[in-house]
Design a protein around this nucleic acid. Structure first.
Lengths: 153, 153
DNA sequence: TACAAATTATTGTAGTCGCAACTATCTGCA
DNA sequence: TGCAGATAGTTGCGACTACAATAATTTGTA
């Protein structure tokens, strides 16, 4: 027996489903002025917050929700830009450590101000304080269901 | 002067940013058991709710957040499956009307039950009633900022 | 120790999408 | 009416991504 969505559940789901993509597109478009895709930017952010500015490929791909091959190609681009380096791990010779370079840190810093403004403009500043808390609660709960823990710096 | 994100704002944004993709991947994976991508499914839903089961390509691409060319290719696939037909508009010869077929309606109906269960499992049933309302309010507000109006059947 | 199974990363291949360019058609205004 | 500009859809092309297969290395167990 199927439990259909109630009108209120339908409204919540549909609003999310319909707006989600447009929101990400808007953020992506704003960020492109700095020559970075949202995906590239996320790599730089995650690496900049990692211990010693480096992370194993497999950990990074999991964090970013990318397939291993997807991350390999994404890193190819960032290496070409000089923002990231590949460093073989001395502890495990299967492992490549993705390391953010000084140039990568500078590129990220150059973009972060506009990016924060973009997130404010399209998302945060449209919400009340209660809604911002609810947003965190909602996606933390969903993330838990998906076996994810949210990382907040 | 940049207004940085407060810790609570950062938590809301990061939770959303980190979980969003994983949520959509989970829904996509569940739906793939019916041989449909989430994108294909959305086309069928939108067309099934449209007047006379048909929509102009440009209206459809806007609704789905796809570029015109992206919609052309997506429809190619659905036409090949027999789920959608292209019908030239008699009122405007530039226009092609995308029309859902009976086979398309059946394919959608065959998938909808599992899809609703999937949305419940990963999203709705993890939230309180208040959070479900908040989800609708939040994305309706964001959608308004992006010039979108949410459509609820 | 020895070897099967698991783990890590990359490459080949195919599917998807957006941008720019193009064709066809319509609209508005002189 | 006639024509410039706007609008609708498709196609070429390049970028991005996932899946499957592959190679290298490590781990667990007999």
């Amino acid at each position: 027996m199927t439990r259909w969505l109630t009108p209120r559940e339908m409204r919540g789901w549909r609003a999310f489903a319909e707006v989600n993509g447009h929101l990400m597109s808007a953020l992506e478009a704003d960020l492109s002025q700095h020559g970075l895709s949202l995906g590239d930017y996320e790599v730089l952010v995650v690496l900049s917050e990692a211990d010693e500015h480096q992370l194993r490929m497999c950990d990074l791909s999991s964090r970013l929700g990318l397939s291993p091959s997807g991350l390999t190609r994404r890193l190819d681009g960032l290496v070409r830009l000089g923002y990231v380096q590949r460093v073989p791990s001395s502890a495990d010779r299967r492992v490549m450590l993705a390391t953010i370079t000084d140039a990568g840190l500078h590129a990220m810093e150059a973009a972060v101000e506009d990016h924060v403004a973009s997130v404010r403009k399209h998302l945060i500043d449209r919400l009340t304080t209660q809604q911002i808390d609810a947003l965190g609660d909602i996606f933390a709960a969903v993330g838990t269901g998906l076996g994810r823990t949210i990382t907040v710096p």
